[in-house]
């Protein structure tokens, strides 16, 4: 099993797909120098591919390390009724969220941005309830609140631009994360 800090770094790459050390630092709160050491070691082991200025991408063995860690670390949580019930409620919130983001992209309306922010605020509160089970989820709450503040302040990229730590990016990565914690396949949303 990976160390907690190696998992945090490799999981950030797993979720973000292609990412550089400063973005991993933004996601995890780990120092850039420590991340770079982890990335160099993982690249030497054949777990990551260097993508130049874009950062790194996980190779098959790197993907297997991360999914294997999820399986081992969260085996006991997969049958926990609190988490499975939590996920059922999340599915409905997720449906509302992706609908609101799609509407915002197509209409740019204030009403759809309000719906996005209401859903994001609700998710941040809901994720906080999972922190006793999965302490690292505190980072999602912190990131979501930061992205919402920037979007509310008029920085439109922080609504759903994939190249910054936008509300949609944080949401999407969290969704991917909780699916792997629970060992569920992603549906088409």
């Amino acid at each position: 099993m990976l160390s907690e800090s190696d998992f945090l770094v490799l999981n950030a790459i797993f979720l973000k797909k292609v990412v550089a050390a400063p973005q991993v630092a933004e996601m995890t709160g780990i120092a850039v120098e420590d991340i770079e050491r982890c990335l160099e070691a993982a690249t030497r082991q054949g777990w990551l591919m260097d993508m130049g200025a874009d950062g790194v991408m996980a190779l098959e063995e790197g993907l297997a390390q991360v999914t294997g860690h999820y399986q081992t670390a969260y085996a006991d949580l997969r049958s926990n009724a609190v988490l499975t019930d939590w996920y059922k409620a999340f599915e409905s919130l997720n449906h509302r969220f992706v609908g609101a983001v799609t509407e915002w992209q197509e209409t740019d309306s204030e009403r759809s941005q309000q719906r996005i922010m209401q859903a994001a605020d609700r998710l941040a509160q809901d994720i906080a309830k999972l922190i006793p089970f999965i302490p690292r989820y505190a980072a999602y709450v912190r990131r979501m609140e930061r992205s919402m503040e920037r979007a509310d302040a008029g920085e439109r990229d922080y609504v759903c631009n994939p190249t910054v730590d936008s509300v949609h990016n944080v949401w999407f990565e969290f969704h991917e994360d909780i699916l792997h914690v629970l060992g569920r396949p992603r549906d088409t949303t």
Binding site: G99, T102, C160, T189
Partner: peptide, 16 residues
């Protein structure tokens, strides 16, 4: 062969 534009893939694809 699956999915709809109201999805994470649709949202990211629309951005790019």
């Amino acid at each position: 062969f699956g999915g709809t534009p109201e999805s994470h893939l649709g949202i990211v694809g629309r951005n790019f």
